[in-house]
Design a protein around this nucleic acid. Structure first.
Lengths: 191, 191
DNA sequence: CCCGTGATTGCACGTGATGTAATCACTGTA
DNA sequence: TACAGTGATTACATCACGTGCAATCACGGG
């Protein structure tokens, strides 16, 4: 299975996603197309399956393990920071390559959005396990996902070497700044 | 083209999305599969093309037209309220049916996420047209998308008859409550 | 009556994806 | 050594999605 991922990554980088067929991938890996679909439901999934699985585990555990004294949002950030440290920090170059492949193709972008939504749902579930209300959990998980998305983007696009976890806290600060200043407040009070 | 959408909606509601083929849709509409793909790039697109096009227009215009005295975030909310009034408010039942179809199928969900992301990008572009910084525009547009998503969900799931625009302002308030209260604040200050 | 334009169609083709059954590789056991 | 069982791999058949291309149709204006 690792061989299929490696072959797929190479070919996607060489010729792009749509211009490479599953047959090519399996051929380079010394397997058949049928076994490819035994491991991955999708041609796209070869780019997502391993990472999103680990991410889900790490974040869930990070949320479950941290002190109940933390606010729910801080618990989510803690979980995301755990994933940042354990999964992304030391693979910045690889993450960049992968992201380049994904952003070059609309289908892959959609799949990534799907994975982000799935991660959001598992974060919400982890919050509910801490006793949070159903709707509150979902909203807070979505805020966490927004912060995560913003931080990841700025981290991969940035040239300096600051660790990802700092981008997370920075993104959280940016969000607070945008949301909590009520310069006019009109549309939030009318009704 | 309207006939294709109608036929597709019927069949998706009757037998589900994956269990209905493009051939069936065109057959019910009295056309051929080839012309289906002349109108829609995708089998999925038949559910999204018309609505997302109008939504993009209305929201963009709403942001561009409203007073520059409004904060960027309020401008986004104004645009989303315009879309709420003009496109959704009077079609609540239809929106519910459509949403039921989408949520029953992972592929359709991914496409919807893609459309949401596209709308987010156009909102960011509209904000930049108001002179906003590139990154700020994107962040604020994403906050708007989050509020929109939350409001739409609560609106379609709710039983009472309050208008969608009120759900938008409520969701914005919920977001403010979640983000701006710093009960612990630990993870936002550490670094 | 003819012409131009746009929508529709027919046909051929490659690719993605699935169900089923056969085969292979490998492990433990007698 | 032989054998049985288990899981991964394979071969084969099949279907639906989606595209490129050329032909045809509908139709309003000159």
């Amino acid at each position: 299975m690792g061989r299929l991922q490696a072959a797929a990554l190479e070919l996607f980088a060489e010729q792009g996603f749509e211009r490479t067929t599953v047959a090519e991938i399996t051929q380079r890996a010394g397997l058949t197309t049928r076994t490819f679909f035994n491991h991955f439901t999708d041609k796209r999934e070869v780019l997502f399956k391993p990472l999103s699985g680990m991410q889900k585990e790490v974040v869930t555990r990070g949320i479950a393990d941290c002190s109940t004294a933390l606010s729910p949002l801080d618990a989510v950030l803690t979980g995301l920071q755990a994933a940042a440290d354990e999964l992304f920090e030391e693979r910045r170059a690889a993450v960049r390559r992968r992201q380049g492949i994904i952003e070059a193709n609309p289908e892959l972008l959609e799949r990534e959005l799907g994975k982000r939504a799935a991660l959001t749902d598992t974060m919400a579930a982890a919050l509910r396990a801490r006793g949070l209300d159903h709707d509150d959990a979902l909203l807070i998980a979505r805020v966490g996902a927004l912060v995560h998305q913003t931080a990841m983007q700025r981290w991969t696009e940035s040239t300096d070497e600051r660790p990802l976890r700092e981008f997370l806290t920075d993104a959280m600060c940016s969000l607070r700044a945008v949301v909590s200043r009520d310069e006019s407040g009109v549309s939030t009070r009318q009704h």
